[in-house]
Design a protein around this nucleic acid. Structure first.
Length: 256
DNA sequence: AGGCCGATCCTCT
DNA sequence: GAGGATCGGCCTA
């Protein structure tokens, strides 16, 4: 079965640059998983840049900080590939490699806006009873089932029973967070670490459907101890699917 | 060989 | 807002 993939593949040159420049430009691009039965896709709305040891600014939070090891070698390889690592024994996080081959630097994907395959994401995340068993979590959904998509948006268009708010909450729960988005798109280290995201044959791809984020909110990165003050987190301002605290100190910049 | 701890998520107070 | 789950990588002895 031939799965229809949205938009077009991003070019290699896009990632052949410093992570802190690639990161904001990545906002609005699509991360697409091809499955046996169709596509699962989300729009990138929150990212963080991690800098390689060659960089002028030392970044002790970066996995590449101490040089290449078997775990992080993909970061030192060619740009546009997936660096997937396991964290806290239960979750995976996904990065996209940047910089020319031989230099380190990558962008962590922290949140997506669900676009395609929401039912599959729901199951993958354990927000249905069957999925909960598969995902190995409790599986208490924000709402029992995702309300139907209408022409005007989610739910009925009115928010009579708080249905729109419930849908917001549900969408957030699907892909808002680096571990969550990997679970929703079935991303694992075993299957996806080192995959070329810019190859039409890959099961995981970064694509461009023409959406442009004109501005980005820049803040400190989340959940790190070292180099915690560097302004290397970028998100689409006020987007409902961004992870973390609702309001974070930062400044708005134009995306070149 | 052993210990520490993390670019997280979920649950309960 | 705090604590537990859970395990591989990396550092120290």
């Amino acid at each position: 079965m031939k799965t229809r993939m949205p938009g077009r593949l991003v070019k290699r040159a896009f990632f052949e640059d410093a992570a802190e420049r690639v990161a904001p430009r990545l906002l609005g691009k699509l991360l697409v998983r091809r499955t046996g039965t169709g596509a699962i896709a989300g729009r990138i709305v929150e990212v963080e840049a991690y800098l390689g040891p060659h960089h002028q600014t030392p970044d002790r939070a970066a996995h590449s900080h101490r040089g290449p090891t078997p775990r992080n070698e993909v970061i030192f390889g060619p740009p546009g590939h997936a660096y997937v690592y396991a964290i806290y024994g239960r979750y995976f996080c996904m990065n996209i490699t940047c910089e020319p081959e031989g230099r380190a630097g990558c962008v962590l994907l922290r949140a997506l806006e669900p676009v395609t395959g929401l039912e599959q994401m729901t199951e993958n995340r354990g927000l249905t009873p069957a999925g909960a068993r598969r995902a190995g979590i409790g599986g208490l959904p924000p709402v029992a089932h995702p309300p139907a998509r209408t022409r005007d948006g989610w739910g009925t268009g009115e928010d009579a029973g708080g249905e729109v708010r419930a849908m917001e909450k549900f969408r957030r729960a699907l892909t808002s967070g680096p571990g969550r988005l990997c679970q929703a798109l079935e991303i694992t280290r075993a299957a996806d670490n080192g995959v070329d995201l810019l190859d039409a044959r890959s099961a995981l791809q970064v694509r461009d459907d023409g959406f442009r984020a004109r501005r980005a909110l820049v803040t400190a990165r989340i959940g790190i101890r070292h180099a915690a003050e560097l302004p290397l987190r970028f998100c689409i301002e006020d987007h409902g699917c961004v992870s973390g605290p609702r309001k974070m100190r930062g400044r708005v910049v134009a995306v070149r």
